[in-house]
Amino acid sequence: MSKPTDLVQGTLDLLILKIVALEPMHGWAIARRIRQMSDDVLRVGQSALYPALHKLEQQGWIEAEWKVSENNRRAKYYSLTRAGRHALAKEAEQWERLSAAISLIVSRA
């Protein structure tokens, strides 16, 4: 990946699901966590993040709740639903297969 913010299409959903699986989290925290966990390689702008969050919520894979945040303000916290957990498992498996297949080709070539 040449630009750190470029994400393979569809993988942002997987990352979000993975991260909110750990604990309920608001958008900004999710973006920060993705950056931290990828050692600053992946940076998700809000222009991609929030539409993705709303779409996942619409799909019923995550649900939102307004809670008081760590800095004492109201923030919208997203958490994984049961359906989202199943979807995460599936997507993660897909991703494993896909990335393994890609690295197989890349390393062999």
């Binding site: 299409q9 569809g10 959903d13 919520e57 619409q58 799909q59 019923g60 649900e63 639903t81 049961r82 359906a83 199943h86 979807a87 599936k90 997507e91 897909q94 297969r97 896909l98």
Partner: peptide, 27 residues
């Protein structure tokens, strides 16, 4: 990339709940 990324539903019960949830959100 031929693999579909979503569109699988594990069992019926969450599916119904999801639909209800979605309906609620849309409304």
């Amino acid at each position: 990339m031929g693999a579909p990324v979503r569109g699988h539903f594990p069992d019926r019960e969450p599916r119904v709940r999801r639909w209800l949830g979605r309906l609620r959100l849309r409304a």
